[in-house]
Amino acid sequence: MATETEGGCQDSADKHIVVSGKLIDELEGLCEEDVFGCYQCGTCAAGCPFMDEMDLTVDEVLRYVILDKKEVLESKTIWLCASCFACAERCPRDINITKIMEALRQIVLRQNIDETDLECLTDEEKRSIPQMAFVSLFRKNIG
């Protein structure tokens, strides 16, 4: 971590995530949310502050899980989620979407594929950004 390799930091390597059975069974232990309860009303997407940067919209992520399309684990969206709970509070089906996003992240992290690599940060930033940001980031993005 000491040397700051300007060129060294590149986007995280393409991950080869292995998921044997159905996604919904993988999620079983991690969160007991009734993903199938979703009727694609779009409220979560309409209320998410980070939708512009997301490759999959929030309801598309849920749809991937329902249709068991494993590519959802490679999407940028699950890492962009800042766990602000706006979607969970507003979902008419009372599904805690924030927990589902965390569970999806955990599936990847528990195959010890880390999302974050701190090379890209300048020293100055390491000093000025509040520690709570780093602690949160490590907890969320590193297995």
């Binding site: 009303c41 309409a46 939708m51 919209t57 309801d59």
Partner: peptide, 27 residues
């Protein structure tokens, strides 16, 4: 076809702003 998440209001003009997702995923 979108169930909106909230209605925002401009306290001055009392006009309302609604953010919604179109059927092809645009916000």
């Amino acid at each position: 076809r979108c169930r909106i998440s909230e209605i925002k209001e401009d306290p001055e003009t009392h006009d309302l702003t609604i953010q919604y997702e179109t059927e092809d995923g645009q916000l």
